[in-house]
Simulated assay, not measured.
Amino acid sequence: MLITLRTVVLSVASTLFFFALALYFVLGTSETAYDVPPAWLIGGQVVGALAIHLLLSAVGYRTPAIEPGTPPDQAATRSAAAFSSTTILRMVLSESIAIVSVAAAFIVTQGEYVAYLTGALLALVLLAFHAFPRERTISKVQASLEREGAASYLREKLGAPPQQAGPIHRL
């Protein structure tokens, strides 16, 4: 399951490169396409990406807690479903900055292509940090699932390696 989710996130990330290729033929041939976009646009993209980051940090990893006494197979199924749905949510919100940048590239009259590239770069950073299933995202979702004390069996269901104990835990 972990490989499938990673493939989905990487597929969405790759669409940003295909958008860039398509927009190159539409916008990249104008004389002003590679100029610096207006400051308000770059500032808006950065503020938007920061707002998305804060939103994802606040609510992007929230899941219903697994109730104590839930059978392991049910807990694992619920955990995997919660992880999948939160991954899709984080992926969609992360990519939204690039989608808005496509529209913005057609509005501005200077730096049209660079405007999209800036938004796509910010989206790729957000995708890598919040959406791509890795140790950090698995741990955050697992903590949300297990906040009432029940085991989630998330790692087992995803096929992820067991969580490594830090140096303090090893003492």
Rank of each mutant, 00 (worst) to 15 (best):
112 E>W: 09
73 D>I: 03
100 V>F: 13
97 I>N: 08
114 V>S: 05
95 E>Q: 13
88 I>E: 04
123 A>R: 06
96 S>Q: 04
101 S>C: 08
116 Y>T: 07
95 E>N: 09
124 L>H: 01
93 L>Q: 01
86 T>Q: 15
106 F>C: 11
80 A>C: 08
79 S>G: 15
86 T>M: 14
102 V>P: 02
118 T>H: 04
79 S>L: 05
91 M>T: 15
75 A>K: 02
112 E>F: 11
73 D>H: 06
87 T>K: 05
114 V>M: 10
109 T>C: 00
100 V>L: 15
99 I>G: 06
125 V>R: 09
81 A>L: 05
85 S>V: 14
101 S>T: 12
126 L>C: 03
82 A>H: 11
126 L>P: 00
91 M>W: 06
86 T>E: 11
116 Y>Q: 12
111 G>D: 02
116 Y>A: 09
103 A>E: 06
72 P>K: 04
94 S>C: 13
99 I>Y: 12
110 Q>D: 10
121 L>M: 14
124 L>A: 05
104 A>C: 09
115 A>M: 11
89 L>S: 10
76 A>F: 04
84 S>V: 08
91 M>Y: 08
104 A>V: 08
74 Q>V: 08
111 G>V: 11
89 L>I: 11
101 S>E: 06
103 A>P: 00
95 E>R: 06
114 V>I: 15
122 L>E: 01
96 S>K: 10
121 L>K: 07
90 R>G: 04
83 F>P: 11
123 A>T: 01
88 I>P: 00
121 L>V: 12
124 L>I: 09
84 S>D: 01
102 V>T: 03
109 T>K: 14
99 I>D: 05
115 A>C: 13
81 A>D: 03
82 A>L: 12
111 G>Q: 05
124 L>V: 03
74 Q>F: 07
116 Y>S: 06
91 M>E: 04
84 S>W: 08
94 S>P: 05
117 L>V: 14
105 A>H: 06
103 A>N: 07
126 L>R: 00
104 A>R: 01
84 S>R: 14
93 L>K: 06
73 D>W: 01
96 S>H: 02
113 Y>I: 06
118 T>Q: 03
78 R>M: 04
94 S>F: 09
73 D>N: 03
112 E>K: 14
76 A>P: 07
79 S>C: 07
123 A>G: 00
97 I>E: 02
108 V>I: 13
98 A>S: 12
118 T>Y: 00
85 S>N: 14
83 F>W: 13
102 V>R: 07
85 S>R: 15
82 A>G: 15
113 Y>N: 04
74 Q>Y: 03
119 G>P: 04
87 T>F: 04
78 R>N: 01
93 L>F: 14
107 I>P: 01
102 V>C: 08
117 L>T: 13
84 S>Y: 10
93 L>W: 14
95 E>P: 02
116 Y>R: 10
126 L>V: 07
86 T>A: 05
110 Q>W: 09
94 S>D: 05
73 D>T: 10
113 Y>M: 11
85 S>T: 15
106 F>A: 09
